[in-house]
Simulated assay, not measured.
Amino acid sequence: MDKRTIAVFVGSLRKDSYNRQLARALERLAEDRLRFDYVDIGRLPFYNQDLDGDYPPGGVALKRQVRGADAVLFVTPEYNRSVPGVLKNAIDLASRPYGDSAFAGLPAAVIGASPGAIGTALAQQHLRNILSYLDMAVMPQPEAYIQFEDGLVDADGRVTRQDTREFLEDFVDRFVNWISLQRG
Protein backbone atom coordinates (compact mmCIF):
# COMPACT_ATOMS: atom_id res chain seq x y z
CA MET A 1 0.00 0.00 0.00
CA ASP A 2 1.23 3.50 -0.84
CA LYS A 3 1.92 5.91 1.95
CA ARG A 4 -0.85 8.36 2.73
CA THR A 5 0.06 12.03 2.52
CA ILE A 6 -0.64 14.05 5.65
CA ALA A 7 -0.76 17.86 5.60
CA VAL A 8 0.84 18.80 8.92
CA PHE A 9 0.00 22.12 10.57
CA VAL A 10 2.36 22.95 13.44
CA GLY A 11 0.82 25.86 15.35
CA SER A 12 4.12 27.28 16.59
CA LEU A 13 6.59 29.31 14.55
CA ARG A 14 9.43 28.88 17.05
CA LYS A 15 12.32 26.96 15.45
CA ASP A 16 12.78 24.61 18.42
CA SER A 17 9.14 24.48 19.43
CA TYR A 18 7.91 21.55 21.47
CA ASN A 19 5.15 20.99 18.96
CA ARG A 20 7.55 20.88 16.01
CA GLN A 21 9.61 18.31 17.94
CA LEU A 22 6.43 16.35 18.64
CA ALA A 23 5.47 16.45 14.95
CA ARG A 24 8.92 15.14 13.97
CA ALA A 25 8.59 12.34 16.53
CA LEU A 26 5.20 11.37 15.10
CA GLU A 27 6.67 11.47 11.60
CA ARG A 28 9.41 9.09 12.69
CA LEU A 29 6.88 6.71 14.28
CA ALA A 30 4.72 6.77 11.15
CA GLU A 31 7.44 6.83 8.50
CA ASP A 32 6.61 3.40 7.06
CA ARG A 33 2.92 4.31 6.57
CA LEU A 34 2.52 8.08 6.28
CA ARG A 35 4.30 10.87 4.41
CA PHE A 36 4.29 14.15 6.31
CA ASP A 37 3.93 17.29 4.20
CA TYR A 38 4.55 20.26 6.51
CA VAL A 39 2.50 23.39 5.85
CA ASP A 40 4.49 26.62 6.25
CA ILE A 41 1.99 28.79 8.11
CA GLY A 42 4.48 31.51 9.03
CA ARG A 43 4.58 33.17 5.62
CA LEU A 44 0.89 33.20 4.83
CA PRO A 45 -0.92 36.47 4.27
CA PHE A 46 -3.62 37.45 6.74
CA TYR A 47 -7.07 36.32 5.70
CA ASN A 48 -9.10 39.27 4.41
CA GLN A 49 -12.62 38.75 3.11
CA ASP A 50 -12.14 41.69 0.73
CA LEU A 51 -9.80 39.43 -1.27
CA ASP A 52 -12.23 36.52 -1.68
CA GLY A 53 -12.80 37.41 -5.34
CA ASP A 54 -9.08 37.60 -6.11
CA TYR A 55 -7.59 35.12 -3.65
CA PRO A 56 -3.96 35.75 -2.65
CA PRO A 57 -1.39 33.35 -4.16
CA GLY A 58 -0.34 32.14 -0.68
CA GLY A 59 -3.94 31.13 0.05
CA VAL A 60 -4.28 29.38 -3.31
CA ALA A 61 -1.05 27.42 -2.72
CA LEU A 62 -2.19 26.49 0.79
CA LYS A 63 -5.50 25.15 -0.52
CA ARG A 64 -3.67 23.15 -3.19
CA GLN A 65 -1.40 21.60 -0.56
CA VAL A 66 -4.32 20.64 1.70
CA ARG A 67 -6.35 19.26 -1.22
CA GLY A 68 -3.37 17.12 -2.20
CA ALA A 69 -3.39 15.41 1.19
CA ASP A 70 -5.26 12.32 2.34
CA ALA A 71 -5.64 13.72 5.87
CA VAL A 72 -4.55 16.58 8.12
CA LEU A 73 -2.63 16.54 11.39
CA PHE A 74 -2.81 19.58 13.67
CA VAL A 75 -0.03 19.86 16.27
CA THR A 76 -0.81 22.86 18.41
CA PRO A 77 0.50 24.71 21.41
CA GLU A 78 -1.87 26.59 23.68
CA TYR A 79 -1.66 30.38 23.80
CA ASN A 80 -3.93 32.15 26.28
CA ARG A 81 -6.17 29.07 26.56
CA SER A 82 -6.73 28.80 22.79
CA VAL A 83 -5.04 28.15 19.45
CA PRO A 84 -2.28 30.46 18.23
CA GLY A 85 -3.43 33.23 15.92
CA VAL A 86 -1.09 32.07 13.16
CA LEU A 87 -2.76 28.64 13.12
CA LYS A 88 -6.24 30.15 13.09
CA ASN A 89 -5.22 32.41 10.19
CA ALA A 90 -4.00 29.38 8.19
CA ILE A 91 -7.27 27.57 8.87
CA ASP A 92 -9.26 30.64 7.77
CA LEU A 93 -7.24 30.96 4.56
CA ALA A 94 -7.68 27.30 3.63
CA SER A 95 -11.41 27.28 4.42
CA ARG A 96 -12.56 30.54 2.82
CA PRO A 97 -14.35 31.92 0.91
CA TYR A 98 -17.48 30.19 2.13
CA GLY A 99 -18.21 27.12 0.00
CA ASP A 100 -14.59 26.63 -1.07
CA SER A 101 -13.02 24.99 1.97
CA ALA A 102 -10.02 22.78 1.25
CA PHE A 103 -10.71 20.94 4.52
CA ALA A 104 -14.25 19.67 3.86
CA GLY A 105 -14.51 15.91 4.23
CA LEU A 106 -10.87 15.31 5.16
CA PRO A 107 -9.97 13.14 8.16
CA ALA A 108 -7.95 14.90 10.82
CA ALA A 109 -6.20 14.36 14.12
CA VAL A 110 -5.31 16.86 16.83
CA ILE A 111 -2.43 16.68 19.29
CA GLY A 112 -0.32 19.17 21.20
CA ALA A 113 2.49 19.63 23.67
CA SER A 114 3.17 22.06 26.47
CA PRO A 115 5.33 22.08 29.60
CA GLY A 116 2.14 22.66 31.62
CA ALA A 117 0.32 19.88 33.45
CA ILE A 118 -2.85 20.10 31.35
CA GLY A 119 -0.90 20.22 28.13
CA THR A 120 -2.94 21.84 25.39
CA ALA A 121 -6.39 20.64 26.40
CA LEU A 122 -8.24 23.94 25.99
CA ALA A 123 -6.58 24.84 22.69
CA GLN A 124 -7.41 21.41 21.34
CA GLN A 125 -11.05 21.73 22.37
CA HIS A 126 -11.30 25.07 20.56
CA LEU A 127 -9.58 23.57 17.53
CA ARG A 128 -11.91 20.56 17.49
CA ASN A 129 -14.91 22.92 17.47
CA ILE A 130 -13.48 24.79 14.48
CA LEU A 131 -12.64 21.62 12.56
CA SER A 132 -16.07 20.14 13.19
CA TYR A 133 -17.66 23.26 11.72
CA LEU A 134 -15.39 22.87 8.68
CA ASP A 135 -16.80 19.36 8.07
CA MET A 136 -13.62 17.52 8.95
CA ALA A 137 -13.81 14.02 10.37
CA VAL A 138 -11.73 14.55 13.53
CA MET A 139 -10.38 11.43 15.20
CA PRO A 140 -12.21 11.34 18.55
CA GLN A 141 -9.74 9.24 20.57
CA PRO A 142 -7.17 9.21 21.90
CA GLU A 143 -7.09 12.78 23.08
CA ALA A 144 -3.40 13.59 23.33
CA TYR A 145 -2.19 16.34 25.65
CA ILE A 146 1.54 15.83 25.91
CA GLN A 147 3.36 17.38 28.86
CA PHE A 148 6.67 18.21 27.24
CA GLU A 149 10.00 18.31 29.03
CA ASP A 150 13.47 18.94 27.62
CA GLY A 151 14.93 15.75 26.19
CA LEU A 152 11.58 14.04 25.59
CA VAL A 153 12.40 13.96 21.88
CA ASP A 154 16.04 13.60 20.84
CA ALA A 155 17.73 15.32 17.88
CA ASP A 156 16.80 12.40 15.60
CA GLY A 157 13.11 12.60 16.47
CA ARG A 158 13.08 9.61 18.78
CA VAL A 159 10.91 9.71 21.89
CA THR A 160 13.12 8.98 24.88
CA ARG A 161 10.45 7.97 27.41
CA GLN A 162 9.04 4.51 26.80
CA ASP A 163 5.54 5.27 28.16
CA THR A 164 5.23 8.38 25.99
CA ARG A 165 6.60 6.54 22.94
CA GLU A 166 4.05 3.74 23.42
CA PHE A 167 1.24 6.27 23.77
CA LEU A 168 2.35 8.08 20.59
CA GLU A 169 2.70 4.78 18.72
CA ASP A 170 -0.92 4.04 19.63
CA PHE A 171 -1.92 7.55 18.51
CA VAL A 172 -0.26 6.99 15.11
CA ASP A 173 -1.79 3.51 14.73
CA ARG A 174 -5.24 4.87 15.46
CA PHE A 175 -4.75 7.81 13.10
CA VAL A 176 -3.73 5.45 10.29
CA ASN A 177 -6.85 3.36 10.99
CA TRP A 178 -9.01 6.49 11.20
CA ILE A 179 -7.82 7.61 7.78
CA SER A 180 -8.59 4.19 6.33
CA LEU A 181 -12.08 4.26 7.82
CA GLN A 182 -12.76 7.71 6.38
CA ARG A 183 -11.02 7.38 2.99
CA GLY A 184 -11.28 3.67 2.28
Rank of each mutant, 00 (worst) to 15 (best):
T120E: 08
P56K: 09
A155P: 04
E166Q: 14
R174I: 02
P107S: 06
R43E: 08
A90W: 09
P84W: 06
Q21R: 15
A117M: 00
R174S: 00
I41Q: 02
F103C: 04
F36W: 01
L62P: 00
G53N: 09
D154R: 13
A137F: 10
L122E: 05
E31F: 02
Y18F: 13
R14V: 09
E169R: 08
R67G: 03
Q147H: 06
Y98P: 10
I118V: 12
F103N: 06
A155C: 06
D135R: 14
D54A: 13
P77V: 11
Y133H: 13
A108Q: 05
N19Y: 02
L168Y: 06
P77Q: 07
D170A: 15
R81P: 04
R24M: 05
R128P: 08
V39E: 00
S101R: 12
R128N: 12
L26M: 14
A7H: 05
V72Y: 08
S101T: 13
A61F: 05
N177V: 07
A23T: 14
A104I: 08
T76L: 00
S95M: 07
P77K: 03
D54S: 15
V75H: 06
L122A: 09
F103P: 01
K15S: 08
V39M: 05
V172P: 03
L122G: 00
D170N: 14
S114T: 15
R35W: 02
K63L: 03
D37C: 10
E31K: 07
I6T: 03
E143N: 12
E143V: 15
L62D: 04
N19I: 01
I91D: 00
A113M: 07
V60P: 05
T76W: 00
D156P: 03
M139V: 13
V8K: 00
G119L: 09
D163A: 15
Y47W: 15
F171G: 05
A117Y: 00
E78C: 09
F148D: 11
V172F: 01
D92K: 01
E169M: 05
S101C: 09
A109Q: 06
D92R: 00
L34D: 01
Q182A: 12
P84F: 08
G184I: 12
R161S: 11
R33W: 03
F175M: 13
S180A: 11
D163T: 11
V60T: 14
R28K: 14
Y55I: 13
Y18N: 15
A104V: 13
G58N: 04
F46S: 03
K88T: 09
I6P: 01
Y98Q: 10
R96E: 07
V176K: 08
P142M: 11
M1T: 06
L29G: 00
F148H: 10
I118S: 14
K88N: 10
L22V: 05
Q124I: 09
G105C: 00
L26T: 07
R174H: 12
S180Y: 02
F46K: 02
S132G: 11
G116A: 08
R14L: 01
A108E: 08
G42M: 12
S12F: 06
F74W: 11
L29W: 00
T5I: 14
M1H: 11
P56E: 11
P97F: 10
S12M: 07
N89E: 01
I130G: 04
R14Y: 05
V8E: 08
V172Y: 07
V60K: 15
K63H: 05
M136Y: 07
S180T: 13
I111R: 04
